[in-house]
Amino acid sequence: MIEGIFVEGLIYAIMALGVFFTFRILDFPDLTVDGSFPMGAVIMATSLHAGVNPLSGLVMAFCGGVSAGFVTAAIHNKLKVPHLLAGILTMTMLYSVNIRILSNRANLPLLRVDTILTRVHSACEGILSPEIASLIFFILVVLGLKLALDLFFLTDLGLVFGALGNNEQMVRVQGVNPATLKLIGVGLSNGLVALSGAFAAQYQGFADVNLGQGIVVSGLASVMLGEFLIKSNRIWALTLRVVLGAILFKAIMYLGRYYGYYINMTPNDLKLITGVLIIISLAASNYKRLRAKGDA
């Protein structure tokens, strides 16, 4: 069971890294995530059913997410629509698009299909149990993505992304078009989110167009939980705490799901708990900031 929490946490950590990129680095609260997460899942499921190799399926899911992010950024850049509205527009449109991708179905099971996980399991047959094999596989995947992201933020382009969320005027004075940066940033972020959705579909054994409902909020909760764990300004620590936050979040949700009935809680209350978790995080960080200024 404990492996299950870690695996789910790691899968959602990929999505949380995407949310961290937009909310924290770009300062672009992007709600496309609620649509691009199931988009990754449905692209993956459809391509697996069509007999596409799982690796190519993951690449296609990533590209799908990137294009969803491009749409949001383009709506925001070209029509000067506020970022929240641009995200909501894309997310809403994606609901229909996702049903189209599943050929007018709302969900698609992935039983008896060759997924990336069945491949990992068969490769480790006799050496490792399927649970442990999945855990090791996802640790490697998340570690790889985290390191790639760390490296990206050390590059010249990555540093400008850091400045964009901090001080957009500085970026413009430096001769870089903020619109181009937002396009790349929101695109990459949604690519990660869709990748996370693709893994989630394979792990759960089905893809559903409603998979993404409220996912951006759980991503944000993961990011905020992580911020309580580590204090640092180094990028490797920032991404590490997102991953840890996502695992912690899944653990809390697990506790709510399995032990919540002692206090009459049902799984339907988990969204409420997620929201309350974010509000508590916000209140706590506000209090800390005020105390640092000496006002509380």
């Binding site: 990206f152 590059t155 010249d156 382009l157 990555g158 001769g175 870089v176």
Partner: peptide
């Protein structure tokens, strides 16, 4: 430097 840049580590 001024202008757009590629993901290359110069620091």
């Amino acid at each position: 430097k001024k202008g757009f840049r590629w993901p290359k580590i110069s620091l």
